[in-house]
Design a protein around this nucleic acid. Structure first.
Length: 152
DNA sequence: GCCAACGTTGGC
DNA sequence: GCCAACGTTGGC
């Protein structure tokens, strides 16, 4: 089983939205590296740290689980979608996504600021300078540590 | 709203 | 295939 961190903007789609709808296709990713993770490496049952970006307190707010493996991102050939990409089509899709399922909302957000001070997390991609990737792998150790911290 | 750090695009 | 210009991300 693998572990991941997925970023989302709470004013677009946050942990509360996921809680409400239970399951959600992770559409709109238009970055090849992130796409490759979803297409090739994310498997059903993998665990996800749900990260809020572009908000008052950026940080990890809960967990989710991969509930459906790689399938084409249909918003990419929907002309009405803001994620429309003319180079992608139903016959030859360029973008892929997974579906994630709500697991848990943390009682307390593990903020980016706090994470920066936690030694066991020092190698996390999200904490490296200049990293903008919306999906990054995390280790089991990091995952467990963050869950533990959120329960304190 | 600023801006650093990236990723992508397209002319050559 | 290089690289300048442009667009986006996301913390602050």
């Amino acid at each position: 089983m693998k572990y991941w961190l997925m970023k989302s903007e709470p004013n677009v789609f946050g942990i509360d939205d996921l809680k409400k709808v239970k399951k959600e296709p992770w559409d709109g990713v238009r970055n090849y590296q992130a796409r490759n993770f979803m297409r090739d490496e994310m498997k059903k049952g993998d665990m996800v740290l749900f990260y809020h970006s572009n908000c008052d307190v950026p940080g990890i707010v809960g967990t989710a689980e991969v509930s459906k493996e790689s399938f084409p991102d249909f918003t990419s050939w929907d002309k009405k979608s803001k994620y429309y990409d003319p180079k992608s089509s139903e016959e030859n899709p360029r973008w892929f996504m997974v579906e994630v399922k709500y697991k848990k909302k943390f009682k307390k957000t593990v903020s980016l600021q706090d994470m920066k001070e936690m030694k066991p997390l020092k190698d996390m991609k999200i904490l490296q300078k200049g990293n903008r990737l919306s999906i990054t792998p995390v280790s089991k150790k990091e995952f467990d540590y963050i869950v533990k911290v959120s329960e304190k």
